[in-house]
Design a protein around this nucleic acid. Structure first.
Length: 866
RNA sequence: GCGGGCGUGGCGUAAUGGUAGCCGCAACGGACUUAAAAUCCGUUUUUCGCAAGGAAGUGCCGGUUCGAGUCCGGCCGCCCGCACCA
C-alpha cells in the first residue's frame, strides 16, 4: 500500500492559519478553570532566530499544548526584549535608526516564530522599546523612589570603555564587560541604584522554598548573595611615635577568634584613609594608581603578588595595647566588601600569610588541631584555615586558650560588645543594582535635574518620557546628551529651566517585569490586579542557565519591589524553572585557520573538504553554536527543508532537555523519516475497512490495546516531568507496535478497532511536539474536531493492569532465568514454581539453600551456600 | 582555592536499590527493484563455544546489601559556576 508523502510545506502554513483564524491560543481569564502560565525567556530581536530559540520554544510549546489538552486555561505569550546595544551599534555602523533596525528584526523573527507553529497568544505581544510598555516602567520607578527603593549616589562604577557606559557588577565577567569584552575601568559617577540589598536576606531565605528550581541555580544565587556572619570593630590608631590619632580604623572579620594572631592591618587603596594620606604622600599616590590600573580580572589576580604600602601608622591590638600592628594600603583588599579594611592574621589566612612572608611580618599560630601536640603546631607555607571544626583548639591566645573556634568567636564578640568597640554584623556580597546607562536605546530615567529643586521626578501625568527620534550617532557617548533640545525642560516644581536626566535604564529592568505585563498587556496601569492575581506566578519558566544570576535575581527583586508598591501580590515570579541545555555542533576549520560553515563542509572518501574550494578541512570540537565559530545551522533553512515539526521533533528527541544536544544532519534526517513513517501508518490505519464490531476483543487486539494505553500513561508522566526524550522513545515503541499490527494484515473487526485506537492515541500523543502533522493525521482519521480542541485521552485501567508478571530469578544475585507468574501469587507458590525451572535446578545442583528472597511481582533471589 | 554536576555499547541515551543497555543514530545482512532512492525484515556490549550454554561488563579501589549503574568512603578524568569577599 502506498500513500502520498506528507507535505509539510503545504500543510504547516495551512494549519497555522487555521489556528490563527479560530483564535485558538488567545487566553482569557476564567476563574472557573485552573490556569497554567508557561513562559519561555523572550528573545532579543537580533534579526533571526537560532537553534537555541527553536529548542527553547519547542519545549515551551509542548508544555503549553499538553496542558491545554489536559484542561488547563493556558497563557503562553511572546514578546521582545527590544532595547539594547546591538541596535545602537547597527546605527553607528550602518546608519540605520535603532528603532527601524529593531522593528524590522522583530517583524522578521515574528514570522520565523510563526513558521514554527507555536501555540502563542500573539494578541498579548509586547516590545520593551514600545512607549506603551516603558511608560509603566517609568511609573513604577517613580513608585519605587517613593518607597525608598531608589538611590542616587556618587560611586566608583564599572566603566566599559568600548560601549561607553556603566555596567552592573553582575555584568562584569572576569574583569571584562559582558557584551564588549573590554577591560572594565573604575570611574566615579553619580548613578541611579535600585536597592536590591534591602532584600538580601529575603532573596536568600526564599531560595529554600523554590523547590521547583534547579538546585544549581539556587546555589549560584546563594553564592552570589554571599551572606557571612562576622564582626565589625575598630582599632585605635597611633603614629610612629605612639601618639594616638583622631581616626579609628574599622574592619570587618569573620575570624575574630584569631585576633591574637593579628600581625598587621591592611586597607584598600580606595579606602578613605588611604586617599587622605595620598594627598601628602607621593609614594602612596603612585601605589594607588598602580593598583587601580591592574584591575581585578582572574588573570591579574592570579599573577599579581600581594603588595602593600606601609602607611607609617599603627593599630593598637584591642586586648594587648602594647602590641602595635603596622598599617598598609594593600592591593588585595577590596573596597566593595565589608569596611574595605581588614586585620591580617597570617597563620590562618592564605593571603595574609603570603603578605606576611613578603614583608617579614610575624606569623603567630593561634588555632591548632586538638591534641597533645597542639601547642607545638606551626603553619608552614600553607595557612591553617579550618573554621568550624570542633577538633581544633585555640593556642597562644591569652584568655581564649583551650577554646574551640566557635567558643572563641563568642567570647571575643562579647568582649568587643561590652567594651563598645564592635558589634556582630552580617555582611552580604550582593551590591545595590546600578541601573544608569549612558546610552540612547533604552528606557529614559524619568527625572529632571533642577538647579533650585534638585532631583525632581517627572509627574506621572507627563509619562511616558519618550526617546527623541532625531538623534545622531556620529560622536562617541550618549546621543541623548548631545541632542540639541530634548533635555531642556521646565522644572515641574518651580518652572525654571531644568534638564532631563539623559541616562537610560539598564535593559535588565525591562526584562524584570515583562512576565507580569503579559497578564494584562494593554492595561493602562503596569499590571492589572485581577489579571495578575489570576495568572501569576509563572507556572513553568524555561530558558538558558546563563541567566541563572542576572535576569532571575533581578526579576525576583522586582517582584518584591512591585509587591511593596502594590503592583503585584506575588514575591516569587517563577514557581518552577527549567534551564535547558545548549545546541552544539561540530566545528570545521580550513588549513588557513578560518572557521567554515557546516553547510560548506562535505565528506568525501572519509575526509572533510570545502564544498566550494575543495580545500581540506579539519574537524574541531563540538561546541555551542556561535557566529564566531561559524558552526551554526539556520533554523529557517531547516524549517523550509524538513518542516517545523521535524525540527521541533529532533530538538526534543535523544538528549534529555537539560543537557546539550548536538545538531547532526543524520539526526534531522532521522526525525524527518519518522514524520513520514507516522503519516504512512496513520494513512494505512485510516483506510482499513470498518465493519460492525460487537466489542469482543481477541488477544492480539487486546495486546495492541495494552501497548496503546500503557504508552499513554508513560507519555503523560514523561510530559508532566518534562522528559521529552523519554516520551519520544515511548511514541517510537507504539509506532513499532502499530506498524507490526498493520503488517500482520488482519482485518478482523476487533483488530481494526484496536489499530484505529492506536492511531488515534499516537496522534494525540505526538501532537504537542508535531502539531501540524497531528492535525493532518487527525483529520485523516475522520475526526470532526481539530486536535487543539480535543482533550488528552484517558487510559482504561483494566488495560494497564497486569495479571501476569515476568519475574527474574537470581541465584546468589546472578540472573539465571525468568518466569511468568500470576500477579500477586503467594510466596510459597512462587518458590515452588521457581524451583521447577531447569536453569535453577542446574544452578542449585548440590548446594543448600540459605535464604529465599522473594520480592513480590519483581524478583526472586536464592542465596545458596557451599 | 571554594561549590556543583557528570562518567553506561561505535554514537545520542534508558534503567522507583531488583532481568544493565528501552528508543534512536550509525553499521552489517536480507526482501522489494532492471537499478538506485525510499520502504520493510533481521543482526549488532565484549568474549569462549558449531550449538546448547557459560564468563566478564556501567571510569578506578573499597564498603553497605540477599541484590549496587543507582547508596556510602577514597581516588582518576571531564564539564559548569564563583573567586584576593576578610
Amino acid at each position: 500500500m502506498t500513500s502520498e508523502r506528507y507535505n509539510s510545506r503545504e500543510a504547516e502554513p495551512r494549519w497555522q492559519k487555521f489556528w490563527s483564524d479560530k483564535h485558538c491560543f488567545e487566553a482569557k481569564e476564567d476563574v472557573s478553570r485552573p490556569k497554567y502560565y508557561v513562559l519561555e525567556m523572550f528573545p532579543y530581536p537580533s534579526g533571526r532566530i537560532h537553534m537555541g530559540h527553536v529548542r527553547n520554544y519547542a519545549m515551551g510549546d509542548v508544555i503549553a499544548r499538553f496542558k491545554r489538552a489536559c484542561g488547563y486555561n493556558v497563557l503562553h505569550p511572546m514578546g521582545w526584549d527590544a532595547f539594547g546595544m546591538p541596535a545602537e551599534n547597527a546605527a553607528i555602523e550602518r546608519g540605520v535608526h535603532p528603532k527601524t533596525w529593531t522593528y524590522e528584526n522583530i517583524a522578521a523573527m515574528r514570522s520565523q516564530l510563526k513558521s514554527m507553529g507555536l501555540s502563542l497568544d500573539w494578541s498579548r505581544e509586547i516590545a520593551t522599546c514600545d512607549p506603551r510598555y516603558y511608560r509603566h516602567e517609568q511609573a513604577m520607578f517613580l513608585d519605587f523612589m517613593k518607597a525608598g527603593l531608589v538611590e542616587r549616589k556618587v560611586s566608583l562604577v564599572n566603566w566599559d570603555p568600548v560601549d561607553q557606559t556603566v555596567l552592573a557588577n553582575e555584568q562584569v565577567i572576569d574583569g571584562k564587560g559582558w557584551r564588549s569584552g573590554a577591560m572594565v575601568e573604575k570611574r566615579e559617577l553619580a548613578q541611579w541604584f535600585l536597592k536590591i540589598t534591602d532584600f538580601s536576606q529575603d532573596l536568600l531565605d526564599a531560595l529554600d522554598r523554590l523547590e521547583k528550581w534547579p538546585e544549581k541555580v539556587r546555589l549560584m544565587q546563594r553564592n552570589w548573595i554571599g551572606r557571612s556572619e562576622g564582626m565589625r570593630f575598630s582599632f585605635v590608631l597611633e603614629d610612629a611615635n605612639g601618639c594616638e590619632l583622631a581616626d579609628r580604623l574599622t574592619v570587618y572579620t569573620t575570624r575574630h577568634d584569631t585576633i591574637f594572631g593579628a600581625s598587621f592591618c591592611a586597607l584598600s587603596v580606595d579606602h578613605e584613609l588611604a586617599r587622605k594620606l595620598s594627598e601628602t604622600d607621593a609614594g602612596l599616590a603612585a601605589f594607588r594608581r598602580e593598583v587601580s590600573a591592574l584591575g581585578t580580572s582572574e588573570e591579574s589576580v592570579e599573577r599579581a603578588e600581594k603588595q602593600g604600602y606601609p602607611l607609617g601608622i599603627f593599630a593598637r591590638h584591642p586586648f594587648k595595647p602594647d602590641v602595635r600592628l603596622p598599617l598598609y594600603a594593600a592591593n588585595f583588599v577590596l573596597m566593595g566588601y565589608g569596611e574595605g579594611a581588614v586585620f591580617g592574621c597570617p597563620a590562618h589566612d592564605q593571603r595574609d600569610l603570603d603578605f606576611a612572608r613578603k614583608y617579614k611580618l610575624p606569623v603567630r599560630t593561634v588555632v591548632a588541631p586538638r591534641g597533645p601536640q597542639a601547642n607545638a603546631f606551626d603553619v608552614g607555607a600553607e595557612a591553617f584555615v579550618d573554621k568550624e571544626g570542633t577538633d581544633t583548639v585555640l593556642i597562644n591566645s591569652d584568655f581564649l586558650n583551650g577554646m574551640t573556634v566557635p567558643q572563641a568567636k563568642e567570647e571575643v564578640s562579647m568582649r568587643f560588645e561590652s567594651a563598645g568597640i564592635g558589634e556582630r554584623k552580617v555582611n552580604f556580597r550582593l551590591r545595590d543594582w546600578g541601573v544608569s546607562r549612558q546610552r540612547y536605546w533604552g528606557c529614559p530615567v524619568p527625572v529632571i535635574h533642577c538647579r533650585g529643586c534638585g532631583i525632581v521626578p517627572v509627574p506621572k501625568a507627563e509619562l511616558p518620557v519618550t526617546l527623541p527620534e532625531d538623534v545622531t550617532f556620529d560622536k562617541p557617548g550618549n546621543p541623548l546628551l548631545h541632542h540639541p533640545t530634548w533635555k531642556n525642560v521646565k522644572c515641574p516644581q518651580c518652572g525654571e529651566a531644568a534638564q532631563r536626566e539623559t541616562d537610560t535604564f539598564d535593559t535588565f529592568i525591562d526584562s524584570s517585569w515583562y512576565f507580569a505585563r503579559f497578564c494584562s498587556p494593554h492595561a493602562d496601569v503596569p499590571v492589572d490586579e485581577n489579571a495578575a492575581h489570576y495568572w501569576m506566578p509563572v507556572d513553568q519558566y524555561i530558558g538558558g542557565v546563563e541567566h541563572a544570576i542576572l535576569h532571575l535575581l533581578y526579576s525576583r527583586f522586582f517582584a518584591r519591589a512591585m509587591s511593596m508598591t502594590h503592583h503585584l501580590d506575588w514575591d516569587e515570579p517563577f514557581a518552577s524553572l527549567f534551564t535547558q541545555g545548549m545546541v552544539v555542533h561540530e566545528t570545521f576549520k580550513s588549513a588557513s585557520g578560518e572557521w567554515v560553515f557546516p553547510v560548506d563542509a562535505v565528506l568525501k572518501d572519509g575526509n572533510w573538504m570545502h564544498a566550494k574550494t575543495g580545500e581540506a578541512l579539519t574537524v574541531g570540537g563540538i561546541e555551542k553554536m556561535s557566529k564566531s565559530k561559524r558552526n551554526v545551522i539556520d533554523p529557517e533553512s531547516i524549517i523550509a527543508g524538513y518542516g517545523a515539526d521535524t525540527a521541533r521533533w529532533f530538538m526534543l528527541s535523544d538528549s534529555p532537555p537539560e543537557r546539550d544536544i548536538e545538531w547532526t544532519e543524520a539526526g534531522a534526517e532521522g526525525a524527518w523519516k519518522f514524520t513520514q513513517r507516522l503519516w504512512r501508518l496513520v494513512n494505512e490505519a485510516a483506510v482499513l475497512p470498518t465493519t460492525e464490531f460487537a466489542g469482543n476483543w481477541g488477544s492480539a487486539a487486546t495486546d495492541l490495546r495494552r501497548v496503546s494505553h500503557k504508552s499513554l500513561v508513560a507519555v503523560t508522566d514523561d510530559l508532566e516531568a518534562l522528559r521529552f526524550n523519554r516520551a519520544i522513545a515511548r511514541i517510537y515503541e507504539l509506532a513499532n507496535a502499530l506498524g507490526a499490527a498493520l503488517a500482520s494484515g488482519t482485518t478482523s473487526p476487533d483488530m481494526v478497532a484496536a489499530i484505529r485506537e492506536a492511531a488515534d492515541f499516537i496522534t494525540l500523543m505526538f501532537a504537542p511536539m508535531m502539531p501540524h502533522l497531528a492535525e493532518a493525521c487527525w483529520e485523516l482519521l475522520g475526526h470532526a474536531q481539530p486536535v487543539v480542541e480535543t482533550p488528552w485521552p484517558k487510559p482504561i485501567a483494566a488495560l494497564i493492569a497486569e495479571n501476569e508478571v515476568t519475574i527474574a530469578v537470581q541465584v546468589n544475585g546472578k540472573r539465571r532465568d525468568e518466569i511468568k507468574l500470576q500477579k500477586g501469587l503467594a510466596r510459597d507458590k512462587v518458590e515452588d514454581a521457581v524451583l521447577k525451572l531447569d536453569a535453577i535446578k542446574r544452578a542449585l545442583d548440590g548446594k543448600s539453600v540459605v535464604k529465599f528472597v522473594v520480592v513480590p511481582d519483581r524478583i526472586v533471589n536464592i542465596v545458596v551456600g557451599g
